[in-house]
């Protein structure tokens, strides 16, 4: 029994030291709660927020619930109870609505970082899907001089990707000499590459003449990678078919760096999203009303010119 008392007391001391280290001062206290800290994109976002908040002298408490979405609600409740000045979430707000309601009832503002819009959020800071699609569709239109036959890979059932497709539709429709020969919705159950490759193989078979396909515009990177594989497998990589994707996933960056048909993709500025969230929060702390329900952070078109910088990051 004496031993267990010793253990209990020493644990209390350890915890008290932690307590002393983290408690103190009057600066705003902000909790960042996410289940996805292990994912690289989220890590950059949170680090970006933390760096900006450190500069402003805020106390930031980053809480990772390691994939557990219900625990995000629990931690929101704890933070509301603790009376923090603001909460930041990086998770689908619909799934943590129970927690958002608790925060709203207590008058504690919640910001979304690449989270999704929700009336219970002050604002959601993210990338503009319309703008990303405009970047790559414009790139294609310019590369082929607004003339030629284009294959599109889209996915309309998923709203964030659907909005990319309609922008590309508009840009290609504005080039009278561009003909969209196919608008393909690949089966994404296998991750999107394999089925896109099969679909592209069918398009290549149906258009056997060199120069009969000018470009492939894909609403995200996986179909673009599948199309690249199909074109290379068919031995048609020297026909000058331009391929573009969106998201700048590592495989796509490698493909762009390799200098083949895959010429461009779009990278989200993750640390910029974190920093912009901190800026919006600072405006709110200083009494301003944030009227934008979504704040967009500019994205970066990645081509041969700047892909090396992206790979370094």
């Amino acid at each position: 029994m004496r031993r267990s008392a010793v253990i209990a007391i020493s644990l209390c001391i350890v915890m008290a030291l932690f307590g002393a280290a983290v408690m103190a001062q009057d600066a705003p206290t902000v909790a960042v709660i996410t289940p996805y800290l292990a994912q690289p994109g989220t890590q950059f976002i949170v680090e970006g927020f933390q760096a900006a908040a450190d500069e402003k002298g805020w106390n930031v408490n980053v809480i990772d619930t390691a994939g557990d979405v219900a625990a995000v609600i629990s931690r929101i409740e704890d933070m509301v109870n603790q009376g923090v000045d603001a909460i930041v979430i990086n998770v689908d707000p619909a799934q943590v609505a129970a927690g958002l309601q608790v925060a709203a009832d207590a008058g504690i503002p919640v910001f979304g970082m690449d989270a999704g819009s929700d009336p219970l959020l002050v604002t959601n800071v993210t990338s503009n899907g319309y703008a990303m699609a405009a970047e790559t569709a414009t790139y294609v239109a310019d590369r082929i001089n607004c003339t030629g036959r284009v294959v599109m890979f889209v996915f309309d059932p998923y709203p964030p990707v659907q909005k990319r497709g309609i922008i590309a539709d508009a840009i290609f429709a504005n080039c009278p000499d561009v003909e969209v020969i196919d608008r393909i919705t690949p089966d994404v159950n296998d991750g999107g590459i394999a089925d896109s490759r099969a679909q592209m193989e069918a398009v290549l078979a149906a258009n056997p003449d060199a120069g009969s396909i000018s470009a492939v515009w894909a609403a995200w990177d996986q179909p673009a990678l599948g199309a690249l594989q199909a074109i290379e497998a068919a031995g048609r990589e020297d026909e000058g078919i331009v391929i573009v994707g969106i998201d700048a996933n590592p495989q796509a960056l490698d493909a762009v760096a390799a200098g083949g048909n895959f010429e461009a993709t779009v990278a989200q500025d993750f640390s910029g999203i974190g920093a912009a969230t901190a800026d919006a929060m600072e405006r709110m702390f200083s009494g301003e009303t944030i009227s934008q329900s979504v704040i967009y952070v500019p994205t970066v078109l990645v081509t041969q010119a700047n892909v090396a910088d992206m790979l370094d990051n």
């Binding site: 932690f18 206290t29 909790a31 933070m79």
Partner: peptide, 13 residues
């Protein structure tokens, strides 16, 4: 979980 979160102890700690 509740108390350590409120004391802002790092989630991994």
């Amino acid at each position: 979980d509740n108390g350590l979160t409120q004391m802002r102890v790092d989630s991994y700690v």
